[in-house]
Simulated assay, not measured.
Amino acid sequence: MISTLVTLCAVVIMFALANWQLHRGLDKAQRIQSIASVSSNASLSLERVLTLDKDIQDLPVSFTGAIDPQKIFLVDNRIHQGRPGFDVYGVAQGQTQNVLINFGWVAGNSMRNDLPQVILPNTLSGALGRVVEPTDNPMITETATQEAIWPKVIQQVDIHFIEQVIKLELPPFVITLTDSSDGFIRNWQPVVMPPEKHYAYAVQWMGLGIAAFLVYFFALRARFRAAHKKGSHEQHE
């Protein structure tokens, strides 16, 4: 009985993981197709993006505004080519709205408490980027406080938390700059793992689930046959 429950639980979990990977792959494929469709469009202004009712994820943006060079957020544990560093975020003021800007990646120093020296421009004029809606990872615990200490190291981009720190209202998205700039590495990758890899994982989990079920099925059938032969033998005696 216990072996049956364990096997059924394992098979259900494996099938659930296969289904999850499949849907992840489909979502990635849909996003890649969406990016390809909007990439041919002209860049929009921040003010135009704010008026749209449709999905704005990955839309191209051309931004002009003033930057507060003091309010710098460093998102920790960002890896580029095997080297740890930070994603640099700053607060910009457009014509009608403040917005969070992702300037790109900078390398960290050998000592963790020795933060890199980051210099932001005072203004951006016609800077090109993409609209990115940050996702909240419940597995990440924020270690930063709301004290105005700059630069501020944070664990993930939480718009609500950043609003509380800077005492300003922000839209629920970030402009991730994509054009080149000295001092920052910009390698915008909206889809890190391709859909094909998710599909491969889905096939693997499905195969493991089927294999586990077959092993249990044949083991159970062999047990029933052995019990049946034993019973027949005892009746003949």
Rank of each mutant, 00 (worst) to 15 (best):
D27G: 00
Q93I: 00
V91H: 04
I149V: 10
D53F: 13
A144G: 12
S34I: 07
A18S: 13
L52H: 04
N41F: 14
M14I: 01
R48Y: 11
V132Y: 07
L46I: 05
K28W: 09
T64K: 07
T123V: 11
D53L: 14
V88R: 01
P134T: 11
F15C: 06
P116K: 01
S62R: 14
I35F: 06
T123S: 12
K71L: 15
G108H: 08
L115Q: 02
Q95N: 06
R78Q: 13
L120V: 00
Q117I: 15
L22Q: 08
E147S: 15
E147Q: 13
P138W: 06
F63Q: 08
S39R: 09
A18Y: 05
G90E: 03
G108I: 03
A148Q: 15
A29E: 08
L26K: 09
L22M: 13
R24L: 01
A29V: 07
D27I: 01
V61E: 02
L124H: 00
K28A: 15
V106L: 00
L50Q: 12
I72F: 10
W150H: 10
P69L: 10
N113Y: 04
P60W: 05
S39K: 05
D58Y: 13
Q93E: 03
R48F: 11
L52I: 03
Q70T: 15
Q97G: 03
A18F: 03
Q21H: 15
G104W: 01
P121G: 15
W105S: 03
L128E: 02
Q70R: 15
V106P: 00
E47C: 14
V106A: 03
G129D: 00
Q33R: 07
T51A: 14
L52Y: 00
I140D: 10
S45E: 09
T143C: 05
A107V: 10
R48L: 14
L44A: 14
T51I: 13
Q97K: 09
A127D: 07
I79E: 01
G94V: 07
S37I: 06
T96A: 11
V99F: 08
L115H: 09
